[in-house]
């Protein structure tokens, strides 16, 4: 059984339908990438899993239905969420941001904190710095770290490379891969940066205007002419 099973998912912002009949599975221990341009529905998929938008259809985490649940309950069931553009608490320190993430983890809080600082050692020296004064890369690391503080079984990372330099993108990719290899954490990542997503994910889903256009193992899709035409212009 897949860790996350999405069946015939439709999502709505008010009257506007943003996702149309999405069905996909995510296997435990894998890194899966969702790619697509602006408005493709990548972030909406994340919001749907987190219970932040109105949905129809089914989203199951290890057989447990997530649709209709509040985001707080989704997190408690084991989904960690690092949203697009980090969404941190800007007047709080890195440490306090991480602690807010760790509230639901209770006894695991110290273990999670050392795991996050081990994963992103740059944050150790910045522990007491307000996140509003940090660089985009550091903020992204705090965002992923805060999601990890919730002790997730599935980590959702929404467009982690937006506005970041190639060097920082590489650091984040390295950290996510390490996380997956060492802890077996399942990671679902959305990206416009196709190269970044393909360098990480074993499986890719391509979204276009709220529909799932293509799916497959990364190596197969890399040579797919349709994908090459859509994203590489050749």
């Amino acid at each position: 059984m897949a860790l996350l099973e999405i069946n015939n998912l439709e999502a709505f912002y008010g009257m506007a339908q943003s996702l149309h009949g999405i069905s996909l599975n995510i296997e435990e221990g894998s890194i899966v990438g969702i790619i697509g341009s602006n408005g493709a529905g990548k972030s909406t998929l994340m919001d749907s899993i987190m219970g932040l938008v109105n949905t129809k259809g089914s989203i199951k985490l290890e057989g447990e239905e997530l649709t209709g649940k509040k985001s707080a309950d989704v997190v408690k069931l084991g989904v960690g969420y690092a949203p697009e553009r980090a969404h941190l608490f800007p007047y709080m320190s890195v440490y306090d941001n991480l602690l807010v993430g760790g509230i639901t983890a209770k006894e695991d809080i110290d273990k999670n904190l050392s795991m996050v600082l081990d994963l992103f050692p740059n944050l150790i020296d910045r522990k007491n710095q307000e996140t509003g004064t940090q660089s985009g890369g550091e903020r992204q690391m705090v965002s992923v770290g805060r999601a990890l503080m919730t002790s997730p079984r599935l980590l959702l990372v929404d467009e982690p490379t937006i506005g970041l330099s190639p060097k920082v993108c590489l650091d984040i990719a390295r950290a996510l891969r390490k996380l997956n290899e060492e802890t077996g954490l399942t990671i679902l990542i959305t990206e416009q940066n196709v190269n970044f997503a393909m360098s990480l994910a074993s499986h890719i889903h391509v979204f276009e205007t709220g529909e799932l256009r293509l799916s497959g193992p990364t190596d197969e899709l890399r040579s797919n002419p349709e994908l090459a035409k859509a994203y590489f212009g050749h």
Binding site: K70, V75, L88, Y91, M92, V100, T104
Partner: peptide, 19 residues
């Protein structure tokens, strides 16, 4: 800590699993 966080970004607090 969580109380202060609400004033900065309530949606993000929800995203941390907090009611």
């Amino acid at each position: 800590n969580a109380l202060s966080a609400i004033g900065m970004n309530e949606e993000a607090v929800k995203g941390c699993g907090i009611n």
